[in-house]
């Protein structure tokens, strides 16, 4: 029997949505749920408050002298972003599938005329957009503080900072979703997410620091290992965007700037891109093989 005759015989309205249509609808739903949830509100407010605080602190003392305070604000924000955004994205991602699995709602949504890939992509996009909104809000408010207190700023660098922050959020969300797909319970998923957060934010860098000190790693080794960490790739991307050179980062940065020159920005973006695509792809593959409940 061919599909055509089936669909001709089916009652009206019973044909299913195109994949983009289904993804868009699930994403929208996910966005709404995220935006209305308490954790999200808390994170957004927290991020905004911290961002404004950093802008204030970074600008203190420059007074009316008209130093474009942004370079400094960005540097302060870099630290803030590297702490808060991965935490936000990892925990949001970790809850995405595991939460629904635990509440039994996953089965129900999968019983609808949608495919698993559509469900996971829809949830990913919805959460991703919610995270991006949170980031935009935080940065937007802090840009307001910069405009009010300091005046000038490097607009291009600021926009790139926002862009890379969104990329970082999406990458960490991707890892979070992968964790979520692997976990049976939200508690486990969140725990794993926190562990990955600590590992990426602190442990891997501290380990590499120790390695650098003990084994006297060469610059290319430090760079090669360091750049694999999405947080370092993010940090370097922002510094390249603001400074056009990594010399701020000492010999390793000088090496990277010299060795890769103009393609450095692309390499760093590529690393971030890989961190977005790979875990998400793995999550999709894994999700299609796992029982929903």
């Amino acid at each position: 029997m061919t599909t055509l005759t089936i669909e001709a015989g089916a009652p009206r309205g019973a044909a299913c949505l195109s994949p983009p249509g289904a993804i868009a609808r699930i994403a929208r739903r996910e966005f709404r749920d995220a935006a209305a949830s308490r954790w999200f509100l808390l994170y957004t407010i927290g991020f905004a408050v911290l961002a404004i605080g950093v802008s204030f602190m970074s600008l203190a003392g420059s007074g009316s002298h008209g130093l474009a305070g942004f370079g400094r604000t960005a540097a302060g924000m870099l630290n803030l972003v590297m702490l808060v955004v991965p935490l936000m994205a990892l925990t949001a991602g970790a809850g995405a599938i595991a939460g629904e699995r635990e509440r039994g709602t996953l089965l129900y949504i999968l019983a609808q005329p949608v495919s698993r890939t559509e469900v996971i992509l829809g949830k990913y996009l919805g959460l991703g957009l919610a995270l991006c909104c949170s980031v935009w809000l935080g940065f937007g408010l802090s840009a307001g503080v910069v405009a009010w207190r300091a005046g000038g700023a490097d607009v291009d660098a600021f926009l790139l900072l926002v862009l890379f922050t969104c990329a970082l959020a999406l990458a960490m969300l991707s890892v979070g979703v992968l964790i979520s797909v692997m976990s049976r319970r939200v508690g486990i998923a969140t725990g794993l997410g926190l562990f990955v957060w600590i590992a990426l934010v602190f442990l891997s860098d501290l380990g590499l620091m120790a390695g650098t000190l003990i084994f006297k790693l060469r610059v290319q080794e430090v760079f090669a290992i360091g750049v694999a960490n999405p947080l370092q790739a993010f940090k370097m991307s922002v510094i390249v965007a603001m400074n056009a050179s990594l010399d701020v980062l000492g010999p390793v940065g000088v090496y990277a700037s010299r060795q890769f020159g103009g393609s450095l920005a692309w390499i760093l973006s590529g690393v971030l891109g890989a961190w977005i695509v790979t875990p998400l792809a793995a999550a999709i593959v894994l999700f299609s093989r796992r029982a929903p409940a």
Partner: peptide
């Protein structure tokens, strides 16, 4: 309805309305 649920599950599910034992859905909605 002639549709293999393993290969074209999405289309097959569009023919089916499902009522679970207990409706588990986002409670805040």
């Amino acid at each position: 309805d002639g549709i293999d649920v393993r290969r074209r599950g999405k289309l097959a599910r569009s023919r089916i309305g499902y009522v679970p034992q207990e409706l588990a859905f986002h409670d805040d909605a």
